[in-house]
Design a protein around this nucleic acid. Structure first.
Ligand SMILES: [Mn+2]
Ligand SMILES: [Mn+2]
Ligand SMILES: [Zn+2]
Ligand SMILES: [Zn+2]
Lengths: 142, 142
DNA sequence: TCTAAATTTAGAATAATTATAATGTATGGA
DNA sequence: TCCATACATTATAATTATTCTAAATTTAGA
């Protein structure tokens, strides 16, 4: 809690109440929130909060490696304060996202004609399927 | 060429010049075009073409399993007429997308607590990196 | 306390996509 | 071949996520 704050202070980032609120909201958050999720939550305590501030702060955090941007959902960007390499599962119905902490780096090999074309920096695996809640709601046979 | 057309006729889809042009544009296209790519190209021959028609047709094709929607690029949706399971590489600089036809299905195993939570339907691997062209443009040491 | 530079803000702008409602046309049967 | 009609296209407006702008405010260090 206090360490994320000093951590960002050390990076030369100015601390404002809004930024602290966003940092606290993100700290340990495994829910993969959208900018709107963050805005709505913090707006309750800081009614003058602007969307621009949320986007600016997310941008700054991204640049400093404090968060990752998740592109698994084509509707909107999600953010992940866990920047250790990991993967995701998305429910194709409710768009909820789960973490996958398996290490596939050894098995995701590429043929030479592709590694020649692109210098690979990493890989994300996006699993997709129907979550239990949505299976139930849609009456899927278990 | 003619077979895609009869193929979609059999699905009960009405064939219009616009749809035929879109089908022909997509047939065998490995470039992962956006709606805008398609619109611009076909607009030249059909100047009255509307964006709505492109989006409607893509939606219809998606529903009939004729194309896949690619979410690797957070800026815009890309479409892929190759619906056989495969993966992608995206250049983080120019957003060009390459196909990866490796079969990782055997090695992408999930722990039981996750397969219990979500009935997995599939997985896509998104590789990311810098393509040769962008390495050169940015003066990256090879 | 003072100041410069960074940050926040309201609001406008942009861009991708979807919705609407009027007009046009493909298609199967008379 | 002609017609009816269900389906498709179109121009346009609406929606939504995100970014930009410029003025006002705040931070942090001297
Ligand atoms: Mn995550
Ligand atoms: Mn592809
Ligand atoms: Zn679900
Ligand atoms: Zn590139």
């Amino acid at each position: 809690m206090e360490n994320i704050i000093t951590k960002y202070k050390e990076k030369g980032l100015r601390l404002t109440p809004q930024r602290i609120a966003i940092l606290k909201y993100l700290d340990g958050n495994t829910g993969h929130p959208t900018a709107d999720n963050i805005y709505r939550d913090i707006k309750r305590r800081y009614p003058t909060l602007s969307f621009a501030t949320v986007y600016n702060t997310l941008q700054t955090l991204k640049e400093h490696g404090g968060i990752m941007e998740i592109t698994i959902d084509s509707m909107r960007k999600h953010y992940d304060p866990n920047t250790t390499p990991h993967h995701h599962i998305i429910c194709v119905d409710c768009n909820e996202i789960w973490d996958v902490f398996e290490d596939y780096s050894k098995v995701l090999r590429l043929p030479p004609h592709l590694t020649r074309e692109v210098r690979i920096a990493g890989a994300h695996v996006d699993f997709y399927g129907l979550c239990r809640k949505c299976q139930k709601r849609k009456g899927v046979k278990m």
